Computed example of a mutant assay.
Amino acid sequence: MSEVKACSQEGCEIRKDGKCLEGLDSECPHFYWDDDNEDEEDISVKSEEASIINKVTNKINVFKGSELGLDEISSVTQRYECDSVIILGDLDCGKTTLLATIFDLFQIGQFKKYLFAGSLTQKGFEIRSHLSRSASGVTKADTERTKALDFRILHISIKDLETSLKKHFLLSDISGETIQLARGSGAAMKEQLGVVKLANHLIYIIDGEKLAGSERAAAIQDALVFIQVAIDNKIFDDKTVLNVLVSKWDLLQELTNFNLYDIVESKINGRFLTKLKEIKYRRIASRPEEENSTAVDLGFGLQDLITDFMTENKSQKKIPIRVQPSDRFINNYKVNENGK
């Protein structure tokens, strides 16, 4: 049985005379090989099938640019190898402001060593930055608070100008209410924050504004309790590198009665240094108050934070990928083959 050239387009005579209707021959997307003894009914069916296949294969998925849910991150991880950055902290501590400011600083070229190399969630970043822009109509820069209890994920790619290294990151935006729930319940910690175990970079933000005022003791106690509950429920362990960021440093740097080591570091280290692999501390001021902006620059401390993200670490875990659905969302993810 021999084969002949055939075409799924109506009116094409390539089966009879070997000539493509559009003059494309084998490059034609409608072209296929067929048995030479098929009857006209078979040819019609084959033509319809080929047309359907052609429509399916020509479909293009376009990213909307919005934030992603945990069940949507595979749309990014299937394209790129990504590091996950999990950002934890209480209400109004500056988690979302940190994300918005990183995006803004790339737009104005503030990171001299690094370049913005793309994002599949640029709309999500823009929404978080809106209230800091003059177009929003507000008189004082602000950031809309994250309200949803579930994880919101933003994608960003960063290029190191010195080494030409380009890395992709998935940055979490988690509401303060989720942190409160997890701190108050081991079951909620496992259910809401189980995926934290798979983070490449783990950040906990302590609100500098609270440390500067009457809520200092409560802010430190909340951090201690959260870390303890995370350890008790095996979210944090002896492989965890915890980055503690003290936000709104512009409100703290001039206080004569504030010593970062005595007030924060010594208390956290005293309880957890032997239980975690490492605890690092950074001072940041993502968006200083206007009256403090001359003493502390916009995005104070964020360049060093980006440097930490960009540092190669071959032992790092790989971003989780989606598997079969389960009632507990942590069971919906597994680590890539070479991850830990």
Rank of each mutant, 00 (worst) to 15 (best):
L70R: 06
D92S: 15
T77N: 09
T57I: 14
K113G: 08
V85Q: 01
G23Q: 09
H30R: 11
L21N: 07
E72Q: 15
F125K: 00
F103P: 02
I87E: 01
L21H: 07
S51Q: 13
L131H: 03
H30W: 12
S129K: 06
L105K: 01
S75G: 06
L98M: 05
D104T: 02
K123A: 10
T121W: 02
T96W: 03
L120Y: 04
G124E: 04
K112Q: 09
G18S: 09
Q122L: 05
V56S: 08
S84W: 07
G118V: 01
K113E: 14
D34L: 08
L91N: 14
G137P: 06
R133L: 15
I52C: 07
S134E: 15
G23P: 09
G18D: 11
S47C: 13
L131N: 08
D25M: 12
D104N: 07
G65R: 04
E48I: 10
S75W: 03
E41R: 10
L105W: 00
E126C: 01
G137Q: 05
N58E: 12
Q122C: 02
R133G: 07
G94A: 05
T121S: 03
E126I: 04
G118D: 03
K59V: 11
V62I: 14
G109V: 01
K95S: 05
F106I: 01
E48N: 07
K113N: 14
S129T: 05
E126K: 10
N61C: 09
G94F: 02
G118T: 05
K112A: 05
L115Q: 08
A135Y: 09
I86A: 11
G23H: 08
E41P: 01
S26K: 13
S44C: 08
K55N: 11
E27V: 07
L88S: 10
L98W: 00
W33A: 04
G69E: 14
V45A: 11
I53P: 00
F63G: 04
T101C: 00
P29G: 01
E126H: 02
K16S: 14
D42E: 15
K113F: 04
S66C: 10
L88F: 06
R79E: 10
D25W: 12
W33C: 00
E72W: 08
L99N: 03
A100M: 00
V76R: 03
S66I: 08
A50T: 10
L120E: 07
V56F: 10
D35Y: 12
L115R: 09
N54S: 11
D92I: 02
E27R: 14
T97H: 02
H130L: 15
I53D: 13
S134C: 06
R79A: 05
K123P: 00
N58R: 12
F125C: 00
D17S: 11
D36F: 10
I60Q: 10
T97G: 02
C28D: 05
N61W: 10
Q122A: 08
A135S: 15
N54I: 06
S74N: 14
Q78G: 07
K123Y: 05
L24F: 11
K64Q: 09
C28I: 02
T101S: 03
T121A: 01
C93Q: 09
G89P: 04
N54W: 01
K64N: 13
Q122P: 00
L131R: 08
E41I: 09
S47Q: 15
K95F: 01
G65D: 04
N54K: 13
C28S: 04
Q122R: 09
T77Y: 05
P29V: 02
D25Q: 13
G124F: 02
N37R: 13
K64C: 04
F116V: 02
